[in-house]
């Protein structure tokens, strides 16, 4: 493009933002410059046929219209308080509901967990214990019996171990390895 006047002034001329003198000068230039004439005509055609409000615009729904008209027609006092609150509530209703449900469920679970932990903390040793001190119930008796069995097994296991390593009279003449050479 040899002429760059369109780039400089064309858009402002189209939007009517050049002052009177600049506007007249540019209008006179367009009449004698084929490049600027082409640019001007192209742009005017586009504005008329392609960039119209029918193509670029749209219409809000009747519900939206009614809500805006209702709130804004009531004047300034109202829009500053109620409409903002109602718009906020409308937009946040779902998230608020979800938050409340989540909060209730988590709160309930935490409450239940606290209740079940209460006797343990009441025992109050502050140390980790395998079995909390609890009143005798079938369950704790069973647990104690089991622990007793484990202890008994362990003692038995230790004595067999000792016998294997150091010898035992019950094992009929099997001498410990470390005594054999003496």
């Amino acid at each position: 493009m040899a002429c760059n006047l369109w780039e400089e002034m064309g858009l402002l001329y189209s939007s009517g933002e050049l002052n009177e003198q600049e506007g007249e000068t540019f209008a006179a230039h367009i009449r004698q410059c084929s490049e600027c004439t082409y640019e001007w005509e192209t742009y005017q055609h586009e504005r008329e046929h392609l960039f119209s409000i029918d193509i670029l615009g749209d219409t809000p729904s009747a519900t939206c219209d009614a809500e805006i008209l209702r709130v804004c027609s009531e004047g300034r006092q109202r829009v500053t308080h109620l409409s903002i609150i109602s718009l906020f509530l409308k937009k946040s209703a779902i998230s608020l509901a979800l938050f409340l449900i989540g909060f209730t469920v988590v709160g309930y679970l935490v409450f239940r967990a606290d209740l079940s932990e209460e006797p343990k903390t009441a025992a109050g040793t502050g140390k980790e214990t395998e079995t909390p001190a609890q009143p005798a119930t079938p369950v704790t008796e069973a647990a104690m019996n089991k622990q007793h069995d484990i202890l008994a097994d362990s003692i038995q296991h230790d004595s067999v171990n000792f016998a294997n390593r150091r010898g035992n009279i019950d094992l009929k003449g099997v001498y410990p390895v470390d005594l054999q050479n003496k």
Binding site: D58, P60, S61, C64, E67, I68, V71, C72, G75, R76, V79, T80, S83, I84, L87, K91
Partner: peptide, 17 residues
């Protein structure tokens, strides 16, 4: 469209506010 309607409401409410 839905967001544009929300923003349209906010625009006019803010204009008045």
């Amino acid at each position: 469209r839905e967001i544009a309607e929300d923003l349209l409401q906010e625009t006019f409410f803010a204009a008045l506010r």
